[in-house]
Nucleic acid binder design. Structure first.
Length: 595
RNA sequence: GGGGAUGUAGCUCAAUUGGUUAGAGUGCCGGCCUGUCACGCCGGAGGUUGCGGGUUCAAGUCCCGUCAUCCUCGCCA
């Protein structure tokens, strides 16, 4: 624009105060609420910074039609309000703008929903009109919190001499782990890139290169089904450092989290964070991401169960399985209906049923009561640490199933019974010493629990493969897994041996990971790192259960973008260029749906 | 891939056992109003009950299929 600009703002809609009274200002913003009193007309003008009331008298308003969400430029004097008219709920409530001229920069169609905070609109509609959804002050506040949080973190890493380095988004497909998003190559007919599930190998190679301390705010892609806390593309704070062991990684992260919480939120986080071996986490909480804000730990009742007359329990012990329980203090007041609901929860996670007992010296009540005659009841109560009036829940079966059932029940009960006490906002926990390998349920072969580059506790890999412990660790916050990391393998011979255990042939090792093995052969430093899911921690610090509100343009549960309608069909010539032919059936006309 | 929930006016919801012209709040439009800030008062418009089929004298309601959204199990090294 070469002519003098008539509409550019002098202030935002959130900054004018009593001290500005008398100034003539120009504001730009959107029409939020309108209150027409005939001879005088009030409009709340909104932008990212706040709301300012503008006042139009009849002569100014003449011929001007303001609709909700019109984008305006208004010019006028800042005037103070009479004491009776001050709006104490708004930072700008002491003043208003006596408008002398209005310019409509862009008029708005009637929005499908009102742009206000406390409006419970269907997610479907919100996502389709995300540009309007993101105009709501709460949504803008969430995005601004995300920006502040990540900004504080970046500053904390840079202050610790970490170097921010970008790694490729077009990279190499690997069959291990999650399903890859694939990108066909035009230049190399029949070949494909993959979008990274994480920058794992690149960051290790940066360590071999001697970059020593790396971090990145990295977008990662996994073509798996969604959840409230999982999107197919998500953001990690990825880092790696050289010449370190576990304690070094923990210490630097603890410092970064303390700084970040302080800078972004004004919250003092307690550090160092407690550490707990995986085996202890499973035994005590039945979970590798325990919420340590409340107790109700799992109790092994094998000593009682093996001798009891309840065949399900004694049989489980004989078969090499476990019988464990939970005690809900005062839970005997629960109704049969509530207990049945708990059983349904247990069944979701593979339980055949849920044995329960309202504990009492005299034998108690519930399905287990008839096995609690004479001294059986007091003995069971002693093992459980239960009192009269408590409700005890039991699971029997193989170890992993029992852990899972009771671990999930514990989390469920923690929410249902509101067991998290006051002042327990941020309870971080490092979970360490994960198992190195687990059996694949289908093929029976070994797979890495973390990833194949994780160092073992014992470089010699001596002993039974199934009992080997790794140097992997997770950071857990209030029962959410925030991220994982490990000390890596920096020795080529050990890396090859791990691939061998995983059943990857020497030939496949060369094809898939040859560049890493090569790198490890050129003086790789001991190194380790960690990656934190930023969507999750940003959601968690806002008290949200879903990460959808902290992602500007999230996908729906079917991995679609409701606003731009991705994914979508492409032109035949585009497929031809990349040497791709679709095997998808043509969409049937009858299946078309205009919803 | 499996299970559950939901789908009615622009939005949020209601509609008895299958029964008259599918209602309310809100928003929107028009009128009135000079101190509102969830303004108020009066009036008005607004519906393919997601889509397709079936049962029935009669379907928002029952049945089958399908689509979409949310939650969830599997899956997510």
């Amino acid at each position: 624009m070469t002519a003098e600009c008539t509409w550019r703002r002098t202030h935002t809609c959130g900054e004018l105060r009593a001290e500005h009274v008398g100034q003539v200002v120009t504001l730009n913003g959107w029409v939020s609420a309108r209150r027409d009193h005939g001879g005088i007309y009030f409009v709340d003008l909104r932008d990212r910074y706040g709301l300012t009331q503008i006042v139009l008298t009849t002569s100014v308003a003449e011929g001007i039609k303001l609709s909700p969400e019109d984008c305006l430029s208004v010019r006028g004097a800042v005037v103070s309000r009479d004491a009776a008219n001050v709006n104490t709920d708004r930072p700008t409530g002491e003043i208003e703008i006596a408008v002398s001229s209005v310019e409509t920069l862009s008029s708005a169609k009637l929005p499908p929903f009102e742009i206000i905070d406390d409006l419970d609109t269907a997610v479907e509609t919100r996502l389709q009109y995300r540009f309007l959804d993101l105009r709501r002050p709460t949504m803008q506040a969430k995005l601004m919190h995300r920006s502040r949080f990540i900004g504080a973190m970046r500053k904390a890493w840079l202050a610790r001499d970490f170097c921010e380095i970008e790694t490729p988004v077009l990279t190499k497909a690997t069959p291990e782990g999650a399903r890859d998003y694939l990108v066909p190559s035009r230049v190399h007919a029949g070949k494909f890139y993959a979008l990274p599930q994480s920058p794992q190998i690149f960051k290790q190679i940066l360590m071999v290169s001697g970059m020593d301390r790396y971090f990145q705010v990295a977008r990662c892609f996994r073509d798996e089904d969604l959840r409230a806390d999982r999107q197919p593309e998500f953001t990690q704070l990825d880092m790696e450092m050289s010449f370190v062991e576990e304690d070094d990684v923990f210490a630097v992260w603890e410092g970064v989290m303390v700084d970040t919480f302080r800078d972004a939120m004004g919250v003092e986080v307690e550090a160092p964070f407690p550490r707990m071996p995986w085996a202890e986490a499973m035994a005590r909480f039945g979970s590798d991401k325990p919420d340590i804000r409340f107790g109700m730990e799992l109790i092994d009742v094998a000593a009682w169960a093996k001798e009891c007359e309840f065949k399900v329990f004694s049989g489980a012990i004989e078969a090499g399985g476990r019988v464990m329980g939970l005690v809900i203090e005062g839970g005997a007041e629960m109704t049969r209906k509530e207990i049945n609901a708990l059983e349904e929860v247990a069944k979701t996670y593979g339980a055949k049923g849920l044995a329960w007992w309202k504990s009492a010296e005299g034998g108690g009540a519930g399905p287990l009561a008839r096995f609690c005659a004479d001294d059986a009841a007091p003995r069971l109560m002693e093992i459980l640490g239960a009192k009269e009036g408590d409700l005890c829940l039991f699971a029997a079966g193989n170890q992993s199933l029992v852990w899972r059932i009771l671990g999930e029940l514990r989390v469920h009960l923690g929410k249902k019974l509101d067991l998290v006490g006051e002042g327990q906002d941020w309870r971080f926990l490092w979970v360490t010493r994960f198992p190195m390998f687990e059996r694949d349920a289908e093929s029976g072969s070994w797979t890495s629990l973390h990833h194949p580059f994780t160092a073992p506790q014992d470089w010699d890999l001596a002993g039974d493969v199934g009992t080997l412990e790794s140097r992997a660790y997770d950071l857990v916050l209030n029962g959410w897994e925030l991220g994982s990391g490990s000390i890596r393998i920096h020795r080529q011979d050990v890396q090859s041996r791990i691939f061998e255990i995983l059943g990857i042939s020497p030939e496949d090792q060369r094809n898939k990971f040859g560049f890493l093995l090569d790198a490890l052969a050129y003086g790789a430093p001991p190194h380790g790192g960690f990656a934190m899911g930023l969507d999750r921690i940003v959601a968690l610090t806002l008290g949200l259960d879903s990460i959808r509100d902290v992602v500007a343009f999230p996908k729906t549960a079917s991995a679609a973008d409701a606003m731009c309608d991705a994914p979508s069909a492409v032109e035949a010539f585009q497929l031809a260029e990349i040497h791709v032919a679709s095997t998808a059936p043509a969409p049937a006309a009858a299946a078309q749906d205009d919803a």
